[in-house]
Design a protein around this nucleic acid. Structure first.
Lengths: 164, 164
DNA sequence: AAAACTTATGTTATATGATAACATACTATT
DNA sequence: AATAGTATGTTATCATATAACATAAGTTTT
């Protein structure tokens, strides 16, 4: 059996998350010959401010607060598109929102558990789920190019909090 | 092993799909004490005009063509919301679009294969995938309330067509 | 059948999310 | 410094979805 854990919904030193995400981002962009410009890094940091997916316009507002200049949608969307291309963030289709990728170095499966209470998105991957999808795809002789598994519900923390 | 088939991406008598979808809709609404009004039935029929997910505004245009009167977004969204509640259609989050549910009587898992070429959405369910999701959810002690599995790629038909 | 109530639909305005098209600025190489 | 390529700024617009209130249609009670 495969074992999985996630700190996303638990208390943790989030500065560590941000730092390692930025370090990974620099490494990956360097490898790919892609330019992690100040703006892109700033947007990545904003997306990484928590484990809760953030809408593009929310990112834009934070960006506008941080920099004195006005910020328009294309500025944000272009940075987000870049980060998506580099595999540094994910898009949660259910929420029209973006969240930092917690393991950008590895091939990742884009599977999320999303808590309806606290808003946290937990990225996960199990061999069983990957296998089940591969199997289903093969059964239908489908050629897979992208996948999105988004499971809504209540995380352990919020269940406990709500039950008190 | 579980065996699965779908006619959605293949040639078939689509009138049969529409007819059985409408019959099932009447039956389900009757059971639930819900009113399948002419407008709601009309919207359901429009969504069922093919196996390709249709955007709300596309539904609205078709509705406007069919009826002489003007049709505004809330009219369409309310009908779509009703049909979603009754489990008669699904929302494809990746596409912001809606598609008829192919087996509304059974409990259904909201798993889709979506062809990027022809646009068809194939609803499917395998025990293995259901099990894998249940397993992952249990592992994280997550309480599941809704799930969305959307797999993009190319259906068998389009692969053959493109390879010629 | 009229009154009261509930549900469904019409109508207007607006919120929210995303992109097209073109202008300017930056970066790296020559 | 000139050039080419990439990144960002700017304006306008498209696409998706909902809030708020008005009217109409069904349902229940009297």
């Amino acid at each position: 059996m495969h074992s999985a854990v996630s700190i996303a919904s638990q208390k943790h030193d989030h500065h560590h998350c941000i730092d390692s995400a930025l370090a990974a981002a620099h490494s990956i962009c360097n490898t790919n010959g892609a330019r992690l410009t100040p703006l892109r890094e700033q947007v990545l940091t904003i997306v990484w401010q928590s484990h809760k997916p953030l809408g593009a316009y929310a990112v834009m507002e934070i960006l506008a607060q941080q920099s004195t200049r006005r910020v328009a949608p294309p500025t944000v969307y272009r940075a987000l598109d870049f980060l998506l291309e580099q595999g540094l963030i994910h898009r949660i289709n259910l929420l029209n929102a973006f969240v930092g990728c917690t393991h950008p170095q590895q091939q990742h499966a884009n599977n999320f558990l999303i808590c309806e209470d606290c808003g946290v998105a937990i990225e996960f991957s199990t061999d069983q789920l990957t296998g089940a999808i591969d199997h289903a795809v093969a059964e239908f002789q489908f050629s897979l190019s992208a996948q999105s598994v988004e499971l809504m519900g209540h995380c352990q923390e919020c269940q406990q909090a709500g039950g008190e």
